[in-house]
Design a binder for these strands. Sequence first.
DNA 1: CCTCCTTGGGAAAGCGCTTACCGAGACGGT
DNA 2: ACCGTCTCGGTAAGCGCTTTCCCAAGGAGG
Lengths: 344, 344
Amino acid sequence: MTGSVTLHDVARRAGVSLATASRALNGSANRVVGEELRERVLRAAAELRYSPNAHAQAMARGRTNIVGLSLHDIADPYFSAVAAGVMREAEAHGLLVTMASTERRPGAETDYVGAFRRHWASVVIVVGSRTDDRAATDQLAEELAAFEAEGGRAVAVSQPRLPVDTISIDNQAGARDLGHALHELGHRRFAVLAGPTELLTATERVAGFREALARHGGRLDPEHVVSGPFTRDGGYAAMRELLDRDPDVSCVFAVNDVMAVGAMAALRDRGIDPPTGMAIAGFDDIATLRDVNPGLTTVRIPLEEIGALAVRLALDDGVTRPRVHRVAGEVVVRASTPRLPPPR
Amino acid sequence: MTGSVTLHDVARRAGVSLATASRALNGSANRVVGEELRERVLRAAAELRYSPNAHAQAMARGRTNIVGLSLHDIADPYFSAVAAGVMREAEAHGLLVTMASTERRPGAETDYVGAFRRHWASVVIVVGSRTDDRAATDQLAEELAAFEAEGGRAVAVSQPRLPVDTISIDNQAGARDLGHALHELGHRRFAVLAGPTELLTATERVAGFREALARHGGRLDPEHVVSGPFTRDGGYAAMRELLDRDPDVSCVFAVNDVMAVGAMAALRDRGIDPPTGMAIAGFDDIATLRDVNPGLTTVRIPLEEIGALAVRLALDDGVTRPRVHRVAGEVVVRASTPRLPPPR
DNA sequence: CCTCCTTGGGAAAGCGCTTACCGAGACGGT
DNA sequence: ACCGTCTCGGTAAGCGCTTTCCCAAGGAGG
């Protein structure tokens, strides 16, 4: 970078000192700059197209207006909804969002938090399920602790296993409610597309669903639980796998919506037309579901609001941390899980 | 920010000077640090969990590893696909992406480029259609010029109306090809959901479509052109408006996919089942179309690749700028526009 | 044995900004 | 007429790092 206009140039052109120029431009607290001088400085700045160097400001002030956001895949509607919420709220507070995609690479979150730490981000938000990998979680916890020790504020959207404010989605209760709702609709023979076995979000949802079935005296045959990636294609593959096992199943719970949507495609490719041949439900209520047919039964999570909330939690002052903010899901029944006629 | 470990601390703990510590950590060019000392420094840094201050480095080096990305709405699959490409390529080059959503607010792009300039981003990428607002375009052009004058590299994904490298999607040709394809399938009575009249991307697509119709001796009745927001809900509203006009139309071209998808919902809500009651086509081939039924005919744009390309263009050295890189679309016919039986 | 390189460490000058701290002038009270 | 006080500009000390320049020590060559 070269040729940029510095405050020095502005001060010289306005015929004032650096201090005065700086004060005129930031309207510095408890110091007033005379009307005439201030005007002269502002004019000089405008004429020179002066743009303050954010790094120099960061150095001098000891903080920045950056929010670091780590998520798994920005092209996934789940994450892009959360990101939209973060950006909206950040914008409202004059913060700039720096974003990094882990592409579900283990350890990447820790690397990115480190990068945000180096940039003296004032806020770091980590979005995405924890895994059962204890070592990875510990490393991330340590990095976040270091970040907060330096005065930053971190918020996690995940299971409460990190030593920072956490927004925790009640996966188990949501899946349980969904299970009850499906049972109430008359569904009995279930399968689950379970997602990755190491992902806590996935296992919690499976557990909640199991719980509901057990309550009604039902069970989940191990053969009817198929694990696989937490993505659309993962859902597609898992559904095929399930069909290959030729199970006695009439309703499938995919542990998130993108998997459910992939599963519906797999059903169609096998000539099964949901919900007639097979009922199906998902989880999250991503925005793109509005245009999926038949409408997918799911558990609504206020994703964008969660993103905004994460920023607000980070900005809260004078509270004792870490706090855990639970967010409940709400079952939304749509056409993909029709009410079955009572058995005769 | 406070309590952070500085290079000074590392140097002291290792018993060396700042200079040596710095050199040991960055493996500075043409200066070798003795094996033993280097090791001592690295050990000290690790023990202290030292994390260099990116701003201080930026100041001292005069540049950063930041990519600034401005787009309209990260929750829109079009933009999130481009963003995913940018982030993937940025990651590969060790760059960090700072992103801002304009929410289609006019002037926001200029503000954000200014913010990126203050941060001495090394690359700025502006994604989104230009409008016919000459003043706004000029302001953005000026800001981008200032950014490049300071040594930054800017790339636009839009119409080539900015004085920087531009990736330009050939909207007109794409829409023309689509028009031909629809005609070839036997469709004759068309309407267009045209998007905002001030948005060049929208008007180019309408123009291309018109061109194709004209070629076949067809025309586009003004009453069959409905403008409205470039969003899913905009498409929904435009479709309702069109239906209210009760037109003699059998095939609708929505100028982007999210509008088309909204339009399909509007059709269904009116009891019309696409494609039986009405054929429909979109533009972009966003990823979520995979799970829309019936499959939407569209013009495929390699969105993620465009994002990655933008980063690569910015990083190109030793070329004369600005360059314009044209990207062609490819018509993809799906079930939403079935072949019509030849008229008897 | 002296001189000239080479090797590698340290001192210090910035990078552009903010913000104590200082000081000069103006003004009012006694 | 003098002094305290207030206003408002300037001076300069950093913020944490990189990098140039300088210098000491040791080895090679004459």
